[in-house]
Amino acid sequence: METENMTNITEEISVEEAPTAAEAPEAAETPVATEAAEAPVVGESAETPEVVETMEDYSKELEASFRKISEGDILSGTVIHVNEEEVTLDLDYFAPGVIKAADLSRDPSFSILADVHVGDKMQGTVIKRDDGAGNILLSCVEASEVIGWDKVQTYLEEKTVLSVKVSETVNKGVIAFVEGIRGFIPASQISLEYVEDLSTFVGKTVDVRVITVDKDKKKLVLSAKDILKEREADRMNQKIAMMAPGTVLEGKVESLMPYGAFVDLGGGLSGLVHISQISQKRIKNPSEVLNVGDTVKVKVLNTNNNKISLSMKAVAENAEPDPVEEKLAAEYSSGKSVGTSLGDLLKGLKL
Rank of each mutant, 00 (worst) to 15 (best):
D130V: 07
V126D: 00
D107E: 13
I112A: 10
P108S: 07
R106W: 02
D120G: 05
F110H: 04
R129P: 00
E142A: 12
S105N: 09
I112P: 05
K121T: 15
T125V: 12
E142Y: 12
L138E: 01
I127M: 12
L138K: 01
G119H: 04
N135F: 07
K128R: 13
A114S: 15
S111V: 11
P108G: 07
S139Y: 09
A133E: 11
D130A: 09
S139T: 06
V118P: 05
N135S: 11
G124Y: 00
L137C: 02
L138D: 01
C140R: 15
R129D: 01
S109E: 09
L137V: 02
S139Q: 07
L137A: 12
D120M: 12
D115V: 11
K121A: 15
R106M: 12
L138C: 03
D130C: 09
G132P: 01
V141L: 06
D130N: 14
A133Q: 11
K121Q: 15
K121N: 14
R129N: 12
D107H: 10
D131F: 00
C140W: 01
I112N: 06
G119S: 04
C140H: 08
H117I: 10
D120Q: 07
S105G: 08
L137H: 09
L138R: 02
F110A: 05
F110I: 04
E142F: 12
M122V: 09
L137W: 11
I127D: 01
V116A: 09
V116N: 06
A133V: 02
D120F: 11
G124K: 01
V118N: 09
D131H: 01
G124W: 01
K128L: 13
S139R: 09
T125Q: 14
G124D: 02
A114E: 15
D120C: 07
S111K: 12
E142M: 13
P108C: 08
K121C: 10
L137N: 08
K121V: 14
I136T: 03
L137I: 03
D115S: 11
V118C: 10
D107Q: 10
G119M: 06
S109Q: 12
P108H: 07
S111T: 11
N135C: 05
Q123N: 14
V141D: 02
P108F: 10
L113H: 10
D107F: 09
V141H: 04
S105D: 08
F110R: 04
S111P: 05
L113I: 15
R129T: 14
A114C: 07
D130E: 05
M122R: 05
D131C: 01
I127E: 05
S109P: 04
Q123W: 08
G119Q: 04
M122S: 02
V118G: 08
D120K: 06
P108I: 11
R106S: 11
C140A: 14
E142G: 14
L138W: 03
L137S: 13
R106I: 06
D107K: 12
G124T: 01
P108W: 08
L138V: 04
D115Y: 10
G132M: 02
N135E: 09
H117T: 15
E142L: 13
G134T: 03
L138M: 06
P108V: 11
H117V: 13
S109D: 12
V141Q: 04
T125H: 03
I136L: 05
G119Y: 06
D130P: 05
R129I: 14
C140T: 07
